[in-house]
């Protein structure tokens, strides 16, 4: 799994940082997503998929085959 985030799209809702805090964080100054781990271990895949699904700005892309 390979994750990319689009900082320009991100609206700082914080859903990803809530659901997968080992993978996503937020910049303190404006809440924009910070990707902590672009290729997380399998134990995080479920939470990453949910994060991408509920991201209101579609700012998270998950490549399952990478």
């Amino acid at each position: 799994m390979k994750i990319t985030v689009d900082e320009d799209k991100c609206c700082g809702a914080g859903q990803c940082a809530l659901i997968a805090p080992e993978v996503f964080d937020q910049r303190d100054e404006d809440g924009v997503v910070v990707l902590l781990d672009a290729a997380p271990g399998e134990e995080h895949h479920g939470a990453v998929r949910e994060s991408a699904q509920v991201c209101p700005a579609a700012a998270i892309t998950v490549d399952e085959d990478a």
Partner: peptide, 17 residues
Amino acid sequence: HARLRRMVASPFTVKRV
């Protein structure tokens, strides 16, 4: 919208909350 929203987003991040 994004420019103004980001100006006040800081106190509402998961960690700050």
